[in-house]
């Protein structure tokens, strides 16, 4: 059996958010794989994504990202050290920066960043919106711009929470095509969603 490279490995992870307890969750995501996390409202899909990103504490169990075990508690890797691309359920574009400036801020001093921004923006049909600020975009454009910012560094684990919620058919297809392409580049996608796109693997969280 060939050795599988894991982008994400959760083993018996328990996450708490306020009084709610989510898990234990066991989940494996291979590099280049797309997985949809489904479940009823309040089941804890978003909380699980937040915990993987390091924005909520993992009470017990083990969590590994790209083969690196992440310790829980204060000694755990900070969110920015985990190599994650994040897109939350609510819009998180920073209103004081243009879309291009936000991509540059996240992308850092990567080589060929300009051409990558241009290519991805073209694919998401927001090439002519790159110099605009978030307040100057429609809801769907802002969501696609946020995806652009999340995927600007290649080869990352992408955590997306309801990424298609503001999209029409065309926007949704563009985003899905981009995610497919990114997965061939070595990215992996874990998405919380009520609807599972075709050809995507899925797993379900039940509410306690």
């Amino acid at each position: 059996m060939a050795h599988r490279e894991l982008a994400l490995d959760l083993d018996q992870c328990v996450v708490t958010r306020g009084v709610a307890v989510i898990g234990p969750v066991t989940l494996q995501l291979e590099v280049g794989e797309q997985l949809a996390l489904t479940g009823p409202n309040g089941a804890g899909k978003s909380s699980l994504l937040l915990a993987i990103a390091g924005l909520l504490p993992v009470q017990s169990g083990t969590l590994s990202i790209a083969g690196q075990s992440i310790a829980s508690g204060a000694d755990g890797a900070e969110p920015w050290q985990r190599g994650i691309g994040w897109m939350g359920q609510e819009r998180g574009l920073w209103p004081h920066l243009s879309i291009e400036a936000q991509c540059r801020l996240v992308g850092g001093k990567k080589r060929k960043l300009d051409s990558r921004i241009a290519a991805l923006a073209e694919q998401l049909a927001i090439s002519d919106r790159l110099q605009r600020f978030p307040a100057q975009l429609s809801g769907g454009e802002a969501q696609r711009a946020e995806l652009l910012r999340a995927v600007i560094i290649p080869g990352r684990l992408l955590l997306l929470d309801e990424p298609f919620s503001a999209q029409n058919q065309d926007g949704r297809q563009r985003m899905q095509a981009l995610l497919d392409l990114l997965c061939t580049e070595g990215s992996s996608v874990l998405m919380a969603s009520h609807e599972v796109p075709e050809d995507w693997a899925s797993c379900s969280i039940e509410s306690n």
Binding site: P79, W86, E90, G92, W94, P95, L105
Partner: peptide
């Protein structure tokens, strides 16, 4: 600062997030 913006800023290095995102906001 809205929670969604704060969460997005957490994924940048602390110095960049503090001076380029949270301080201007």
């Amino acid at each position: 600062l809205p929670a969604s913006e704060r969460v997005a800023a957490h994924l940048l290095s602390p110095t960049v997030a503090r001076w380029r995102i949270r301080l201007p906001r």
